[in-house]
């Protein structure tokens, strides 16, 4: 894939950040509003795909030197570990819990282990989607 479309590249530079910010918002908003790890992950992936379309694979890889297979595997691992964590504490596999804590800056905040699990989902989705797209994209 090699395009040199100035309009696309310029607008992508701005758009990607908007989409990425939005995706992270959606991911964390998922606890109370529409959103969550799946949607957040997919939106992030689509932002990255836009980046890869606007520039070429090599350039983007220099900016984001991440192996997405590892991101996906880490996501699955995080999700699994939250499950095992509850087992270590004597609850059934994948029991989630939550608590309200007062944090500096945020004030009273709800902390839920479910969000950590969702983060795992998010990473797995981003990693997998990007692995698939990049594998095809890089194929000769």
């Amino acid at each position: 894939m090699k395009f040199t479309d100035v309009i696309l590249q310029t607008s992508t530079k701005i758009l990607v950040f908007i989409i990425l910010t939005f995706s992270i918002y959606v991911m964390f908003a998922g606890h109370h509003n529409p959103g969550g790890g799946f949607i957040g992950g997919l939106i992030t992936a689509s932002a990255l795909i836009l980046l890869y379309i606007a520039f070429d694979v090599k350039t983007v890889h220099e900016i984001i030197p991440v192996d997405f297979k590892i991101v996906g595997a880490l996501g699955v691992l995080i999700a699994l570990l939250t499950g095992i964590g509850s087992m270590v504490l004597g609850y059934p596999f994948l029991s989630q819990t939550f608590a309200y804590k007062t944090l500096p800056l945020f004030g009273k905040t709800e902390l839920a282990t479910a969000v950590i699990f969702d983060l795992g989902v998010y990473m797995a989705v981003v990693g997998t989607t990007m692995t698939i797209i990049l594998s095809i994209g890089e194929d000769e």
Binding site: H32, G35, A112
Partner: peptide
Amino acid sequence: AGAKNIVN
């Protein structure tokens, strides 16, 4: 579960 989004 401390969540307002039931589906999530």
